Amino acid sequence: MNPRNPGNPDDETRYIGPTSGGSGSSGDQGRPRQYFPGEHDPNFRYDPAYDSAHEQPYEEPYAPSSAAPAPAKKSGGALPMLLGILFGLTLLAAIAFFFLWRGAAAEADREPPAPVTVTSTVERTVTTTEEAPALPTQIPTEIPSDIVPSDLPEIDIEGWLNELTGGAPEPAP
């Protein structure tokens, strides 16, 4: 609700969709437009006391007109700062070398350690390799008679396989 004009419901800020044509430039045609209360209302009353209560009086900033700006003081520059940093780093290095020197001097004053004798046993395994006999160039097709003992019974391997498989194989068509 608008406190200035509570009876008019059209006096509220509201969204109006994109407008076509109008007084805007060609880039404003599809853009939304905001509606301000009282913009097209002939009964709208503007109260100037409302705006004047929030205004602050304008004061000119102080600027001396006759005095020229005072020259800025220059600091010592970068050279003293650089020398101070180098002095600090040198001091830190001197302290580090002092402690390293003290540690080395204390270690040099100690007696050398007694000699230590270490005995170890090593087992060694020696493997000898013999030359393998030459392989035969021809493979025999029958078992030699001097290798096979003569008292072995003769076995019918084909018949034994037929019994295991359930009969003689059928001839191929």
Score class of each variant (00 low, 15 high):
residue 57 P to E: 05
residue 118 V to L: 14
residue 79 L to N: 14
residue 128 T to K: 12
residue 25 S to T: 15
residue 6 P to E: 02
residue 112 P to A: 06
residue 68 A to P: 03
residue 116 V to P: 05
residue 86 L to P: 00
residue 55 E to P: 03
residue 65 S to N: 12
residue 89 L to K: 12
residue 62 Y to N: 03
residue 109 D to S: 15
residue 38 G to E: 01
residue 19 T to Q: 14
residue 16 I to F: 14
residue 52 S to Q: 13
residue 131 E to I: 01
residue 80 P to C: 04
residue 110 R to H: 02
residue 173 P to D: 12
residue 12 E to M: 15
residue 110 R to Y: 03
residue 24 G to S: 08
residue 163 E to W: 12
residue 150 S to T: 10
residue 12 E to H: 09
residue 26 S to W: 13
residue 41 D to S: 03
residue 28 D to R: 08
residue 65 S to V: 11
residue 165 T to Y: 08
residue 33 R to A: 08
residue 11 D to H: 11
residue 83 L to Q: 13
residue 28 D to A: 06
residue 31 R to H: 06
residue 151 D to L: 10
residue 15 Y to L: 14
residue 110 R to G: 01
residue 14 R to A: 04
residue 109 D to P: 03
residue 65 S to F: 15
residue 155 I to C: 09
residue 123 E to F: 10
residue 159 G to M: 15
residue 135 L to V: 05
residue 171 P to C: 03
residue 79 L to A: 02
residue 58 Y to H: 13
residue 3 P to R: 02
residue 151 D to M: 00
residue 131 E to A: 03
residue 59 E to Y: 15
residue 145 S to Y: 12
residue 112 P to W: 02
residue 58 Y to S: 05
residue 75 S to E: 13
residue 84 G to F: 03
residue 171 P to F: 09
residue 79 L to D: 07
residue 13 T to I: 11
residue 36 F to L: 15
residue 14 R to G: 04
residue 3 P to V: 00
residue 47 D to H: 04
residue 8 N to R: 07
residue 4 R to P: 03
residue 131 E to L: 14
residue 72 A to F: 06
residue 128 T to W: 09
residue 26 S to I: 06
residue 13 T to S: 00
residue 47 D to N: 13
residue 139 I to Q: 00
residue 81 M to Q: 10
residue 79 L to C: 02
residue 59 E to N: 14
residue 44 F to P: 02
residue 122 V to F: 05
residue 54 H to W: 13
residue 44 F to N: 08
residue 122 V to W: 09
residue 3 P to H: 07
residue 62 Y to A: 07
residue 123 E to V: 04
residue 85 I to P: 00
residue 108 A to V: 11
residue 81 M to A: 12
residue 64 P to W: 08
residue 50 Y to K: 14
residue 48 P to G: 04
residue 154 E to G: 00
residue 19 T to G: 08
residue 78 A to G: 07
residue 91 L to E: 10
residue 115 P to G: 06
residue 32 P to E: 09
residue 4 R to D: 07
residue 159 G to K: 11
residue 78 A to Q: 14
residue 173 P to H: 07
residue 112 P to V: 02
residue 125 T to M: 00
residue 54 H to R: 15
residue 113 P to H: 02
residue 128 T to G: 08
residue 2 N to Q: 05
residue 113 P to M: 06
residue 104 A to V: 14
residue 97 F to P: 05
residue 98 F to P: 01
residue 114 A to H: 04
residue 29 Q to Y: 10
residue 160 W to D: 15
